[in-house]
Design a protein around this nucleic acid. Structure first.
Lengths: 262, 262
DNA sequence: CGTAAAATTGAGCATCCTCAAAACCCGTGG
DNA sequence: CCACGGGTTTTGAGGATGCTCAATTTTACG
């Protein structure tokens, strides 16, 4: 389902394995250095958001175009729909949702973004963002001015290919979400959502079986095209069937294959 | 809904206005020269698939990287899921659907592509295509080897920006389709689909009010996440309400604003 | 023309939604 | 420390939307 793995493989050693008790909390610090925020070479997210095999000079070139990282408090936005598009963002710590608003006022969550994911590519086409990016918890992002990144793409082929893969990955992810919304039952949607999240946490060095949801049932439902009550019912059903153990936002996957078979 | 307009405005004079009777047929020839297929400068789709304001040298550079165009018969594919990704394609004449297949065998139509649209960007991320591109009628595509296009992007800023806008446009289009699939009633989905198609035909110089659908009700339903019978029922309802005049695949929009209010 | 595919329409039904009530969780302030 | 209160979650009952199945008509194409 997730295709992040297709273009970037985590070197697990780079990521501090979270202590078992804290595993479910996705701690904000996540192994990233507090100061010296422009040192991509030292960043634990490097293997996700940077191309492989750069020369030290090229790496330094990239570091030089990244602005100081920015802290976003829970509920605040990095950007909003119709904001002028200047930069893309790499989630350094924390997590975000992206939300599009229909003219009648209804909202729809188009994605959840964890540390290492990129944000903001929706603005490339028109020069204005098409959604809001809202922090689900206190978070940090690296800011990458897009015109500088484009200039770098013209210099370094590896950077160009990485940017193209980021955009291509977004396209593939969205079309598999369209497939989910277009063909799956509510039960399958929730199961797919949990397995996808589990995969992405595993790739980041967290436990794939135990985690803490940062989003509400309503946000999950919006993302999956169902109502919050239906999300809750499906979780209860999975629990009844022994596939899952839920306590509010704490999730423990008991039967991965069973969920996949739903 | 469609954001093509955001980055490329058709020069209507470039497009031969179809004769009224033939308007509904979207004729294959569509003003494109039969021979000399590499002359982008003479192509009526130029303003859709090429950046503005290139120097003659740059234009020639692009023409030199486009392979001879290829004819695809109705029902045939340009590429299939898992095919190795080599090129992207510009629809020169005709139309296509893109289809993703779920492991359980269910299909989902992720898009319809008219002359001037691009195809194949889904392969950029993984190096393999993630969907089938199937011709809805006898069609023609220009073939653009992606590694050559990437090289050109490093040379010419305008080409780079155009490629980024193409990919960014794909991302925005897909997220507005996710919104449709996630929040709209069947009635709204069908209305939105018709208005979107109408817009895109208008931008290409065809009548926005009268057109001929190249896809079946089943394909429309798959695209909209509903069943073919539901598509049919909604069309009948619009006809009953005086918004539409349908005769099989021939559509005439009688009340554009009424459809938009649904 | 004749045949197969596509579209329309109806009836009954399943899934998911709506509305509502109660339980729960968590942070805040007394 | 505990009680309070708002937001979140769970669970139930009833209802609407869209699905399934089926029969019929229409269209497309060799």
């Amino acid at each position: 389902m997730s295709d992040v793995a297709a273009y970037s493989v985590i070197a697990p050693a780079l990521i501090r394995p979270p202590a078992s008790a804290a595993a479910a909390q996705m701690p904000l610090s996540a192994g990233a250095p507090r100061k010296d925020v422009r040192r991509c070479s030292a960043c634990s997210m490097r293997s996700i958001c940077m191309p492989q095999g750069l020369t030290p000079e090229e790496l330094q070139g990239i570091e030089s175009l990244i602005c100081p990282s920015r802290t976003i408090k829970q509920g605040e936005t990095i950007y909003r729909a119709n904001d002028s598009f200047q930069s893309i963002y790499a989630v350094r710590a924390g997590s975000f949702k992206t939300v599009v608003m229909h003219r009648d006022g209804r909202e729809h969550v188009t994605g959840f973004h964890l540390a290492g994911d990129s944000l903001g590519l929706d603005g490339v086409c028109s020069g204005h963002h098409s959604c809001d990016a809202v922090a689900l918890e206190d978070s940090k992002v690296c800011i990458i001015p897009f015109h500088l990144l484009e200039a770098m793409c013209r210099e370094v082929k590896a950077v160009q290919q990485h940017v193209h893969r980021m955009m291509g990955g977004e396209i593939v992810r969205e079309s598999s979400q369209m497939m989910l919304l277009g063909t799956m039952s509510a039960e399958q949607r929730v199961a797919t959502f949990l397995l996808n999240l589990s995969d992405r946490l595993r790739m980041r060095g967290y436990s794939p079986a135990e985690f803490h949801l940062r989003m509400t049932r309503e946000e999950i439902g919006s993302y999956l095209g169902i109502k919050l009550e239906t999300v809750s019912r499906m979780l209860s059903r999975f629990q009844r069937d022994g596939l899952l153990d839920t306590h509010g936002k704490d999730i423990r996957i008991l039967d991965h294959d069973g969920l996949a078979r739903v």
